[in-house]
């Protein structure tokens, strides 16, 4: 049983207090939805979990995962920036991340967001939505325990949204965990919702 636990987290950015006393517990197969207005700290919290931020106080622990790796090394973090290189083709982009992250399943990644037809086109030619799909395909490329998604639905059409939902569902049912910050409600029942930025 894998469990992600946050306890009395506080976060500051540029000297400004973003949030204080955030806590949650998430077990395998569960999805935590982050809600809240702009600047409430949804993105900061996701980065904090990934280890890409520093908490002023409190701690995050992952029990039952791979003890040799940090939380971030067991997580996918997908945000607004898509980590795509325009001169490389779709397949080359995926191939790099597959290699760099320790071996990936290219076929699964291409299939997850219906990218097969685009595989040999340079990423520079992709539309915003297609880039988004390529970026999210990393989730299917390399299996990782914890998914940290920051507004993953932005720019996706109904079909792709559907694929994302399916992918998430598959991830959860195979024992994965996910924390998703979103404005648009997903077609998925979140096991818990954390609303940031209400106590002022």
């Amino acid at each position: 049983m894998v469990q992600l636990q946050a306890d009395s987290l506080a976060c500051q950015r540029g000297g400004r207090t973003v949030f204080t006393d955030v806590k949650f517990t998430l077990s395998s197969g569960q999805l935590l939805e982050l809600r809240g207005p702009n600047g409430a700290g949804k993105s900061s919290l996701l980065r904090l979990i990934a280890g890409l931020g520093e908490a002023v106080s409190g701690q995050i622990t992952l029990t039952g995962g791979n003890g040799d790796l940090s939380i971030g090394q067991q997580a996918h973090y997908a945000a607004h920036q898509e980590a795509i290189k325009a001169p490389l083709t779709v397949a080359e982009n995926l191939k790099f991340w597959g290699d760099f992250l320790g071996g990936g399943d290219m076929a699964a990644a291409l299939a997850a967001f219906d990218l097969k037809a685009l595989a040999d086109y340079p990423a520079a030619l992709l539309s915003a939505g297609q880039k988004r799909r390529l970026s999210l395909a990393r989730l299917a490329l390399v299996p990782r325990l914890l998914w940290l998604l920051d507004e993953p639905t932005v720019g996706l059409d109904a079909n792709s949204l559907d694929r994302l939902t399916r992918l998430l569902r598959g991830h959860l049912s195979s024992g994965g965990l996910a924390v998703v910050a979103t404005h648009a409600p997903l077609d998925l029942i979140a096991d818990a919702t954390l609303v940031l930025g209400t106590a002022r």
């Binding site: 990934a50 280890g51 090394q73 973090y77 607004h80 920036q81 290189k85 991340w97 992250l101």
Partner: peptide, 13 residues
């Protein structure tokens, strides 16, 4: 700028 460094920081390297 394009977020690659974020993803690299989460790599095993």
């Amino acid at each position: 700028e394009d977020g690659s460094l974020d993803a690299m920081a989460l790599g095993v390297v």
